[in-house]
Design a binder for these strands. Structure first.
Lengths: 247, 247
DNA sequence: CGTTGTCTTGATTACGCTCAACTCAGGTGG
DNA sequence: CCACCTGAGTTGAGCGTAATCAAGACAACG
């Protein structure tokens, strides 16, 4: 197939084993890889929406601005993720998307969704499953934002990021790079940057998380999970591989 | 077709005009209407998930329990809504669902999704669009919970409910029945029941919302929108009717 | 070595929570 | 018909978590 393993194929393969034809179809969708600089805007709320993107490398986030100048980050995208899936039903972007680091994205016009729907029942199901998973992440973040203390929010978020990173990179044994400023963390967690700093200190004092610049160490994953009431069922357990009749 | 207009057909028709065959297919999916009592549980988190439901009449909500006994309500479902769409990719329920009022639901096994995917490109697209819209609602609630004051949360939520109700019931000119206790409102908005009461009083004093038991009056919709920074683009504007090539 | 941006630390403030008492409406039974 | 009970909603007092404001530390970079 392709020398450099397509990351969208890798992503889809998490859900279901794919036939050669399906892989080819997916490959053809990921056809225009574009390099993109850290901190640059993919699109802004209100822009016309007629494609989504797959993130081949780098990190990105979607966010919304509020009238008082606050900003809420909605999702953090990692390599392999699909960006803008949510806006399939809309003519305009509902949220802005910005790169965190340098990266490569591929464009995927909404129109071609219909090709995918027509040509493969399996891929249709998988795409639906991916959308479901994104919703589950969002729901979890909602609960996190609405109901938990600053400590719990931080603990939960760090745990989630650790698990998501471990799913693609092979084991990283309690350590990872988190290329987010404390201001960005604040915008994710619904806190002030100042309080993010304090919360990090507090977690550190209790030996739950250590951090040096953007390098995070989690000495005891279970302890962190307990602190953040983290339950990974929305991330891992139950992702069900749906199968085509014909496969 | 069907004497009593199927509410799922009505729902789908919002997005796209449907052929006779498509309507028949949809009708066949909504095959086992079941009466269900107020306050009864549709399912609980952790239950096996192999179907979703369409809500023919009555209100329902999905929620999550937290360890400290708090509860977060994730979504409020109105007649015509699809419940449990998010869990398509999962083997277990990620959230519990409970009826608010007496109602009627129809079951729709996940397996039959594949029939739908195979038989109609249009319906596949519309289902995707419905899922997108639900995500948009969820995202909006997330921003609301994370970043707004109690006043704004209330204002925003009431405005959203008003618009959603107006989309199905014909014009209700600033008044509607909101069959939610203040405890339920608190669980939706991430507030304490006590503070919901205070916030209602505050909004009342400023003439933004009047309320008698479960009857809500909004004298000035624009003022309420301003208070809650409400922007309806996620609800109405941009829902794009996607069309099948063949139609 | 100075500049810049990010992070830290301290002091003060405020929004919403908790606890508790009270009101009120609706329902029940004597 | 009235007395009582119950559950929802209201109001007040005090408290706590996190926000805000402001000053200082620190690292990276020119």
């Amino acid at each position: 197939m392709n020398q450099e393993k397509s990351c969208i194929i890798q992503h889809f393969s998490h859900y279901c084993s794919l036939t050669k034809e399906e892989k080819q179809l997916l490959n053809s969708l990921e056809d225009s890889p574009t390099e993109i600089k850290a901190n640059s805007l993919l699109w802004e709320m209100g822009d016309p929406a007629n494609e989504f993107c797959t993130l081949k490398s780098g990190w990105a986030y979607s966010y919304r601005h509020l009238e008082n100048g606050d900003r809420q980050i909605l999702e953090v995208f990692l390599p392999g993720d699909i960006i803008g899936l949510r806006e399939f039903a809309f003519a305009q972007r509902l949220e802005s998307v910005r790169m965190i680091s340098d990266g490569v994205i591929c464009h995927f016009p909404h129109k071609r969704m219909l090709d995918l729907f027509q040509q493969s029942l399996t891929l249709t199901s998988v795409l639906f499953a991916i959308s479901s998973r994104q919703q589950a992440l969002l729901t979890e973040r909602l609960v996190n934002l609405a109901r938990r203390s600053a400590r719990q929010k931080m603990a939960h978020f760090l745990h989630e990021m650790y698990l998501r990173l471990r799913q693609t990179s092979d084991d990283i044994s309690g350590q990872f790079r988190l290329p987010l400023s404390q201001e960005q963390l604040a915008d994710i967690l619904g806190l002030s940057p100042v309080h993010v700093s304090r919360t990090f200190s507090a977690l550190s004092e209790d030996g739950l998380v250590f951090r040096d610049r953007h390098h995070v160490t989690i000495p005891n994953l279970k302890a962190l999970a307990a602190e953040g009431e983290f339950d990974d069922c929305y991330l891992t357990d139950n992702v069900r591989p749906l199968r085509d009749h014909s496969s």
